[in-house]
Design a protein around this nucleic acid. Structure first.
Lengths: 315, 315
DNA sequence: CAGGTTCATGAAACCGGTTACATTGCCAAT
DNA sequence: ATTGGCAATGTAACCGGTTTCATGAACCTG
């Protein structure tokens, strides 16, 4: 049994004929090693955990794709879990990861993170994505949401245009930052803000309200692409021309943004690449190869101007 | 230690004060049970495995979303794995699932499935999605790709229009079936077929070729939505009007299909729902509640006519 | 040919839980 | 007071691998 283990794991202290016997028998009996047993004794599971707030939409699918890319390049698996809802569920998701994964990629944009950090096992390597850390010493990757929002709003406000905002969910760290960027780009005060929840539908509802406004703003900055697209559909349906009458910008640059007509001006975060880098970093931390400097890597997103805001700067 | 286990798992043969002591200590020590150890002794992992050929694009994100929905409704986790490439990798992915999951949702549209079935452990409950089964006694969910393609092509060919086809990858079961549907709808012979690989880019290349054709077909049926969209972009860029000059249809009804302009006529498979049902069925099989009848559930997809083929029937 | 070294193999401990079974203590019934 | 029953707790086996260590055979070397 010991030799069998050695043979199957390709150790060199096994005679060729013994190895052949073992592998032959394994094939005959359709034997597959039991992963939990192996994980228990080796203390490795060859799996990375990914905890996301949601699985809906292209944004999260890009996150998964990025980490999967990095993981499978190293022969690792991906355990995906959602914390649909709030920080308590996120905490539960984290707890259940123990013993199941070698490390954790965690994205939890909820505002109150104390519960969460209390549930982070100290012995489980963790890399955070777009999560409020507030001086806690954690390895993390963040998109500079504030700077991205400022860039988008400054672009829309060029020539003195009034800019409205469709905000994301209130308890969300990222939407908070983007809203703060909107405010700062406008010199510290907000013009019109309609509350949304990152869904296309909430963007659509906002668009309906904008279309009906007597004193309609010249431009709209939505806190993410899906709301921008919902808004766009509403405006077009109600006969408002985009970008001629209303210019529009979103955030994230999900693949669809390029495909809608007019194509959507947005802020590219390249989230797949971010999560790929996060996964690579996590692997390094697990291997103990990480000098853990710098702790926090902030990515500056890039404004991508497309048709939905064409001509706004010389309006 | 036995009492600790009992207290933490909520068994009733523990005194209240003992339970309190245990839970208190667990909190103080930030103790989380080791999942691998628990899985080893209980022979349950509370995890469903999902093996997909790829993670790219909206299609697979919908698959994941559907199974996740069903899984988390029952407090189960999702282990996602890709078999990027071929049936050998798929087999490897399957093998590594043993001991890690309680059951498997497997989608493997490769044509040669023998390798795959040899690697399916007999003791691991498995539900197949859109996989060629050929009389093997397996629980499976399939979309009737042939019928869907026939419906789309008949729609496009109404009024006697010539219909071309952009085919999916050659070794893929689903693209094979869709191509067969295209052929059958045309009375058994193919008109023009351009080979693609399910990617938007390959659709774009096909579109460029169609645009340049002297004797251009009146309609194009693409084997999936992303190729249809790539084709659409190429046609529009090269000044070919859709649907006035060329009508277009895709397959899958991914969320983007509704958002492009002109919106895309397609065949709705509702893959998220399919994978949700597959996951629910898998849970039943694991619990032994499944009478395993019927083995195979075939879903008839539905033609969704949108702008990209408007007016084709009275051409 | 004796003694030491190398190396493949087998035996047993271990990973961290769960659970069958043995033990203990308490109370009621005889 | 003794006994039987029952429920709470402790003990130990077990899940299925990996790995340390002991064993012994073969091979060198002087």
């Amino acid at each position: 049994m010991a030799s069998a283990s050695r043979a199957l794991n390709g150790l060199d202290n096994v005679t060729p004929q013994m190895r052949e016997r073992v592998i032959g028998a394994a094939q005959r009996l359709r034997y597959f090693p039991h992963t939990a047993a192996r994980a228990l004794s080796t203390r490795r599971s060859d799996t990375l955990g990914v905890v996301l707030p949601d699985l809906h939409g292209e944004f999260f699918s890009e996150v998964i794709r990025g980490s999967d890319l990095a993981a499978r390049a190293r022969g690792l698996h991906l355990l995906v879990s959602t914390s649909h809802g709030n920080e308590d569920e996120a905490a539960a998701a984290i707890r259940s990861m123990r013993g199941r994964v070698d490390g954790l990629i965690l994205m939890s944009p909820y505002v109150d993170e104390d519960v969460l950090f209390e549930n982070l096992a100290d012995d489980l390597p963790t890399v955070l994505i777009n999560t409020r850390i507030e001086g806690r010493p954690r390895v993390a990757f963040c998109v500079d949401n504030h700077a991205g929002a400022v860039a988008a709003v400054k672009h829309l406000a060029a020539g003195g245009s009034r800019v409205a905002h469709i905000a994301g969910p209130a308890d969300n760290f990222e939407s908070e930052e983007r809203r703060r960027g909107y405010r700062d780009a406008l010199g510290g005060s907000e013009d019109i803000v309609i509350q949304g929840d990152f869904s296309e539908e909430s963007g659509y509802r906002a668009g309906v309200r904008f279309a009906a406004m007597a004193d309609r703003p010249r431009a709209i900055f939505a806190a993410n692409d899906m709301m921008a697209i919902g808004c766009l559909l509403a405006l077009l349906e109600l006969g408002v021309r985009v970008p001629a009458e209303v210019a529009l910008a979103g955030f994230d640059d999900v693949p669809v943004a390029r495909l809608v007509r007019p194509s959507l001006t947005t802020v590219r975060t390249d989230i797949a690449d971010l999560s790929r880098r996060a996964a690579e970093r996590l692997v390094a931390v697990i291997a103990g190869e990480d000098n853990v400097e710098p702790l926090l890597e902030i990515t500056r997103p890039k404004l991508v101007v497309r048709e939905s805001s064409a001509g706004i700067s010389n309006a």
